[in-house]
Design a binder for these strands. Structure first.
Lengths: 329, 329
DNA sequence: GGCCGTTTATAGCATTTGGGCATAACAAAG
DNA sequence: CTTTGTTATGCCCAAATGCTATAAACGGCC
């Protein structure tokens, strides 16, 4: 089976004679004549009845003609698609990120990106930092987002772009007074029942590292892959949730303080990473740049609440967060 | 664009490496390697990122992969269809016949034929005898039915099979007494206003020939391509309709007599004809044979009514026509 | 770091495919 | 019968394709 066979078959059937088909296809007549014969032999049936100097479609040929037409249409569709892709700004972009990243960043950002690149299909995978690293290494995704530096990746093979930093926050029910300021030392969490992200997450690893440094042996009440589970549990008074400032907390009634180690806030850089050995099209590199800009606009998403919480807490922050969201529309 | 390119592209993309693809496609690895490169050059874009010893689909490749898959499915559908056709009993059969033939014969016969050849698509064209001849000569149809011998066709090129004969009938309103018997001589139609088939019909030509022989100069009241128009006009008393016995007349209140010339009934043989230079598949030759058998069963469809018509005319004939119709179901 | 197994890409050679030219075979029209 | 137009065939050459051998790159392992 050959596209050329199909093409000459269809043209000959349409024009009625081999000669005319040869003229249209800018080739000599014997070539087409032989192609028809070869095609018939390959299919094992007569496509034309040779009556006089005309070629008349047989009943079988009539049926195959339709099939060959759609085949040719398919082929030209593919080449046309290739041409589209060559123009650029078209393709599939597979990205992965943590649940909180997808929720608080991507959910808005994708709209902005789709404005600039309407013909790029962004496919999203959700996972922990280590899972994202695996996907990146296996080549199943093009970009891995929200990777923290604590997740090691080979500098030789992977490029990355900083996306700003997340701070480590502790969230608990307002009635619980963790600290009289809007920060708290890691070490003071000793004995406090903690609600932590699953250990696969880079954020969790960063917290664990800080704990070791501070000599804290954490009391782990619960671990989850879903940060909102931690917030809900914290709101219900089951302990203190350790969450990244990237997480949306405004739906919950929580007191939020920043974690510090030796007086300095705990923060972890975020990055977007890719395999340097792969060639990223413009719409992919642009994705990274646009993402960095967008996150710079909206970060930090959640900040510590005032030390003495009032009812209308975080009112100024809501005002600060609105404009970028609108501009992203 | 080449089906081979598409095939190796899809296989390599599915199996992840060129080597495995080569093994599956039972060929050497360098061949596929070059095919991929050639395909990429032809399309003008990278399909794979060569990272390490793996080939990872680019975003563009991902999109083209889907297109190539449907292309290959199309191709295999065509070859599969060809195999079906090779088995036989599948195809398109284009036939043509007169309106009365289609109405009274084909309408029932096609059911019987479809029982035997359910996968043959019969396409019907309607026309006069001379139009059918043209279609046959131009190759637009495979079989021309209901051709009368008065329509000349070249014995060298066209084969034919007799289908029985039609008689020439005269139909008028019952109150009009054309004849006291169930036949009437052609010559006696002199001066009678006649309702005739269009002169393109072989049946009309047969009548004209008989008229000339009998020295009759017909008084033509009306000509039509639609025989039922003639019957309706005759029933309304506008004249005598000259119609073939093949025509269904039972819906009309008409007196019907057979035309004779020198005491012998006028009759014209019917045939089904084809271009001998074309190869007819079995389902086509069988169509002819089955048609001949069927028409033998049901002919003549309309016979002269009793000379003194009663109310329950043609009751026995209705009974005679039912059984074949049932057996054809 | 060095070796080994694996994989891709390249080179050289052989085979096949396919087109072009000339021409035969054939049909239709004058 | 000749002329014209069309299909099919033989011959030649070029392009495509495949195979073997081999180089180059990579990853894993010691």
């Amino acid at each position: 089976m050959n596209l050329r066979h199909a093409r000459t078959f269809v043209t000959v059937a349409e024009l009625g004679t081999v000669s005319k088909a040869a003229h249209r296809l800018r080739t000599a007549q014997p070539a087409l004549s032989r192609q028809i014969i070869d095609f018939e032999q390959e299919l094992g049936l007569r496509l034309f009845d040779r009556v006089g100097r005309r070629l008349l479609l047989t009943g079988e040929g009539e049926q195959l003609l339709a099939g060959c037409r759609v085949l040719l249409n398919c082929a030209s569709a593919v080449t046309e698609q290739a041409q589209q892709l060559r123009q650029g700004d078209t393709g599939v972009l597979k990205v992965a990120g943590s649940p909180q990243h997808i929720e608080s960043v991507l959910s808005q950002f994708l709209h902005r990106y789709a404005e600039r690149y309407p013909n790029v299909e962004v496919r999203i995978a959700e996972g922990t930092g280590s899972e994202i690293l695996k996907l990146l290494e296996s080549g199943e995704i093009h970009l891995g987002q929200n990777l923290l530096h604590s997740v090691k990746l080979d500098k030789r093979h992977f490029g990355s772009l900083p996306l700003g930093s997340v701070e480590v926050l502790a969230a608990c029910r307002p009635s619980l007074t963790l600290s009289d300021r809007d920060t708290i030392e890691v070490a003071r969490l000793s004995g406090v029942p903690l609600l932590l992200m699953d250990s696969g997450f880079g954020f969790r690893r960063a917290f664990d590292a800080a704990s070791r440094m501070a000599g804290l042996i954490p009391t782990i009440k619960f671990e989850s892959r879903n940060p909102h589970t931690l917030l809900a549990l914290a709101e219900a008074g089951h302990g203190v949730a350790i969450v990244p400032s990237q997480l949306q907390c405004r739906r919950y009634s929580l007191r939020i303080v920043g974690l510090t180690y030796r007086g300095r806030p705990l923060r972890e850089p975020l990055t977007v990473s890719w395999d340097k050995r792969r060639s990223l099209p413009r719409f992919a590199t642009d994705y990274c740049a646009m993402l960095a800009g967008y996150m710079c606009e909206i970060f930090p998403i959640t900040r510590p609440t005032a030390p003495k919480p009032t009812i209308s807490r975080r009112a100024p922050k809501q005002a600060r967060r609105k404009p970028p969201a609108v501009s992203a529309r």
